[in-house]
Amino acid sequence: MSELSWLIAATALSLSGMAWLALAMEVHWGQVMHRPASQAPRTRQLLRGLGALALLLSLLACLMADRPSMAALVWIMLMAGSAVAVALTLSWRPRWLRALAIG
């Protein structure tokens, strides 16, 4: 795969990871799903695990794209940008994240 392909994969993984971590939170789950978080404790636990795994895979994709020193920098910037993108989505159109919710 080319460097660009790895970076696109890293971006997608970082965005989905941050969205899954946000959906694992009680407040954001209720905001997106319009039902109490207490109804889906196992789903939220699964989302937390998927979020962490996606961020780890994002780091690995960055490492495949470039040397370790640059990959770490790109990964940190991707996580920051993804967190901002998810936060803006939650404040503007939270229902867009419903597609990433499992339950």
Rank of each mutant, 00 (worst) to 15 (best):
M1R: 10
S2E: 06
S2V: 05
S5Y: 09
W6P: 01
W6D: 13
L7E: 07
L7G: 11
L7W: 09
I8K: 12
I8M: 11
I8T: 12
A9T: 15
A9C: 14
A10N: 02
T11Y: 10
T11F: 12
A12E: 06
A12L: 15
L13P: 01
S14K: 03
S14I: 08
S14Y: 02
S14A: 14
S14F: 02
L15F: 12
L15H: 09
L15A: 10
S16I: 15
S16P: 00
G17T: 07
G17H: 04
G17D: 09
A19F: 05
A19M: 09
W20L: 05
A22M: 01
A24Q: 05
M25S: 11
M25A: 13
E26M: 04
V27C: 04
H28C: 10
H28M: 04
W29I: 02
G30M: 07
V32K: 01
M33T: 06
M33F: 01
M33N: 00
M33K: 01
H34F: 11
H34I: 14
H34V: 13
R35L: 09
R35T: 14
P36Y: 03
P36E: 04
P36K: 09
A37E: 08
S38P: 03
S38N: 09
S38H: 13
Q39I: 12
A40D: 14
R42V: 14
T43P: 00
Q45M: 10
L47E: 07
L47M: 15
L47Q: 11
G49E: 12
L50M: 04
L50N: 02
L50W: 00
G51A: 05
A52C: 09
A54R: 02
A54E: 05
A54T: 07
A54W: 05
L55Y: 07
L57T: 08
S58N: 04
L59Y: 11
L60F: 08
L60H: 00
L60D: 02
A61L: 14
A61R: 03
A61C: 11
A61E: 04
C62H: 02
L63Q: 01
M64N: 12
M64H: 09
M64A: 14
A65V: 13
R67F: 10
R67G: 14
P68S: 06
P68L: 07
S69W: 06
S69D: 07
S69Y: 00
S69F: 09
S69P: 00
A71V: 09
A71F: 03
A72R: 14
A72P: 06
L73I: 15
I76C: 13
I76W: 10
M77V: 15
M77D: 15
M77W: 14
L78T: 04
L78H: 04
M79L: 15
A80C: 03
A80W: 08
G81S: 08
G81T: 03
S82T: 04
A83V: 13
V84R: 08
V84K: 05
V84M: 12
V86T: 02
V86F: 02
L88H: 04
L88W: 11
T89W: 05
L90K: 03
S91C: 11
S91A: 15
S91E: 13
S91T: 13
W92H: 12
R93K: 12
P94W: 07
R95W: 12
W96S: 15
W96E: 11
W96M: 13
L97Y: 03
L97T: 05
R98D: 13
R98W: 14
R98E: 14
R98T: 12
A99P: 03
L100V: 09
A101R: 01
A101D: 06
I102S: 00
G103S: 10
G103F: 05
